[in-house]
């Protein structure tokens, strides 16, 4: 079970108003990160279903990265706590399914956090390469 994928596949959940503009800025600034990272944008991190994280990993993604609003969320004052709850519920689902919890990562990405985003994704892909893949494919 050590078929190491050449390029890890990462699903990124971003938010329309905060982290997605930050990710756009990474592209506009030609900051490179592996193209295995693809983004699904939602209004708010607090709206992510924990089951989507498990589903993505079962469908063949090597990792899920939640680019959260942090304290900048325009909707929910307790967005950080809610997002933390989503992550811990998702972690519980992963652990039940025997999936390494390191495959889920969350970091606050602000609307101008281009460099931190590119750096985080590069780092996450490196970490995932070390974890290997294969055992995840359902």
């Amino acid at each position: 079970m050590t078929t190491v994928a050449a390029a890890p596949r990462v699903l990124v959940f971003s938010t329309n108003n905060i982290s997605d503009p930050g990710i756009d800025l990474a592209g506009s600034s030609h900051l490179h990160y592996p193209p295995g990272a693809v983004v699904i944008s939602l209004p708010c991190t607090s709206g992510i279903k924990p089951s989507w994280v498990l589903y993505a990993l079962q469908r063949g993604f090597d990792g899920v990265f939640i680019a959260s609003d942090g304290d900048e969320c325009a909707y929910l004052p307790d967005c950080s706590e809610r997002s933390a709850r989503v992550v811990s519920q998702a972690q519980a689902l992963l652990s039940e399914a025997g999936i390494d919890g390191q495959r889920l990562k969350i970091a606050a990405i602000c609307s101008v956090c281009a460099e931190p985003f590119a750096r985080q994704i590069r780092q996450f892909c490196d970490d995932l390469s070390r974890l290997g893949s294969g055992e995840l494919v359902a």
């Binding site: 990710i23 756009d24 990474a26 592209g27 030609h30 490179h32 193209p35 983004v39 590119a118």
Partner: peptide, 21 residues
């Protein structure tokens, strides 16, 4: 679908990877 800021512009170092993405 954002294939510019989140694809072609972010992966100018990997045209083939960008096309697949």
């Amino acid at each position: 679908v954002n294939i510019r800021e989140q694809c072609s512009w972010a992966h100018t170092d990997d045209p083939q990877g960008a096309t697949q993405k």
